[in-house]
Every structure is written in C-alpha cells, then in structure tokens.
C-alpha cells in the first residue's frame, strides 16, 4: 500500500487508497460519508439488497484504524444513511462500532442525513471540528481555507486506451481536501459537476482510489467530458 502525500495549510496529510486521510502530526484519521445502514433503508422501500453493507463499511474503517493507529478519528458526517439508521443496526455491528469509537477519540461531525448524533455508540458529536489550522466539516463552505469535507462523494472518470475508468477519488487544491465516501453502498458524483468543480475554481487534483495506491490527475484532465450527472435507471425495453 502506498499513501499519497498532500499539503494543506502547511500540514502534511496522507491519502490512503481505502478512502481515508491521515494527519500524522496530529495523530488524526478522517473518513467521510459512511452511510451505515443504507442497505436496510433500501429494504424498507422494497429493495432487498444484501444486508452486509454496514459490516463491509466497518471493515474498511477498522482496516484504516489498524493501519494508522490514530489517536483521533473524525467521521465527516452522513455516517448513518438516515436519522433512524443507528436504531436498525444489528447488535453485533453496533458492538463492533462501539469498540472502534472506544479505541480513539471519535468525533461524529453531523451531516444532512444524520443531523443528530447516534445514541449509545460512543464518541462525541460536533457540527464542525477544528484542529490546528484545519477545519473538518460535512459540507464544504465556500471560501473556507484548510478545510476537509465530504458530502459530495466525488468520483472521476479517466479516458484510457480501453475505455473510461471510473473510481471514487479525493479532490484537493491548496485550501481544501474533499474525501470520497467510505460507505459500501455509496454512489458518487462526478468531479466535473458544478457542485464539486465550483469548490475548486482554480483547479486541483483528483486522486483516484486504486487497489494499492492512488492515481493522480488534474481536475482538467478528469473533466474533459461533460459527463451525465444523473445515471438513468436501467429500463424495461418497450416490447
């Protein structure tokens, strides 16, 4: 595994190909958009998708914590897919999450999907978390500096000789780092979308997640095409 270093307000951050970012100087690990219990939220609507998404997401979080041994973990909001998500959690998953929130100082930054802190799972909640020159927020604030944020689930497509390859990615410029979603069932928004591109007006870099490393491209390279922002649902053919 090779982490990619980036610098934000003079602080050195390491991007992990699993989708988290480590700030070694502060012993702090940040992750974004876990969307725990999205599977059961879908099930409630009639889509009985496999129920292991929470377990798979916790696997990733646990792997990141094992690798970096952080003193502090900041989850950048939308940690649960909806406000009642934490209540639907299987007991074993809840126990495991409690284990993780006890292993480090755990900060739940609140998101739009989970505006209230989860109950009985440890950790502390915050609207915004600040440490040194850096600020941790769910949704980016225009003009902010030294900001780490989530919310948009960035992904990027790169044209290769065998077609486009699309991956979740970090997006970074000198002032802001946007994290990919860590959740097993989270989709993505293309970095060319104005909601993301508008936050990086002077350009920036996309770091695409690979199996063991990240792949770096400028936003301009990742934005060569005006991509569809809405994936049309698979359709029944007219018969």
């Amino acid at each position: 595994m090779t982490a990619a270093p980036v610098h934000l307000m003079g602080e050195r951050l390491l991007l992990d190909p699993l989708g988290g970012v480590m700030w070694p100087a502060a012993g702090l690990l940040a992750v974004a958009d876990l969307h725990l219990e999205k599977g059961s939220a879908c099930a409630a609507r009639g889509q009985l998708v496999p129920p292991w998404d929470t377990r798979a997401t916790l696997d990733r979080l646990a792997a990141l914590m094992r690798r970096w041994r952080p003193r502090t973990v900041v989850a950048l909001g939308d940690s649960f897919h909806d406000a009642r998500g934490s209540l639907r959690m299987a007991p074993a998953d809840a126990a495991r999450l409690r284990g993780l929130t006890e292993a480090a100082a755990f900060i739940w930054v609140l998101g739009n999907h989970d505006p209230a802190p989860p109950e009985g799972l440890g950790g502390q909640a915050a609207e915004v978390w600040a440490a040194g020159p850096l600020v941790f927020r769910h949704q980016a604030k225009r003009g902010a500096e030294g900001e780490l944020c989530g919310h948009h689930h960035p992904k990027a497509s790169i044209a290769t000789r065998a077609g486009a390859v699309t991956r979740p990615c970090f997006v970074a410029d000198a002032r802001r780092l946007m994290l990919p979603a860590l959740g097993a069932y989270t989709g993505g928004l293309d970095v060319a979308h104005p909601a993301i591109a508008g936050l990086f007006p002077r350009g920036g870099r996309a770091f695409l997640l690979g199996q063991d490393r990240l792949f770096s491209f400028t936003l301009a390279q990742a934005a060569v095409s005006a991509r569809p922002q809405v994936r049309p649902p698979p359709r029944a053919a007219d018969a």
Binding site: A41, Q47, P50, D53, A184, Y185, G187, P233
Partner: peptide, 29 residues
C-alpha cells in the same frame, strides 16, 4: 434493483445502490 419506482424519480440517487457495489458485498459475504 428496481427499474421503476412509483413517484420517486427525484430522490432516485439516494434510494438506489449501484449493482457493482452490491455485487462486491454479496460476493464477499
């Protein structure tokens, strides 16, 4: 995976899961 869901075009992104993601989770578990 639903192709059509009554009256839910708008929030589709929040209620559908990409089949690749489902495949990965199902294959592992």
């Amino acid at each position: 995976i639903e192709r059509n869901h009554p009256g839910q075009e708008k929030n589709r992104r929040q209620v559908t899961v990409n089949s690749d993601l489902i495949y990965d989770v199902l294959r592992r578990h």
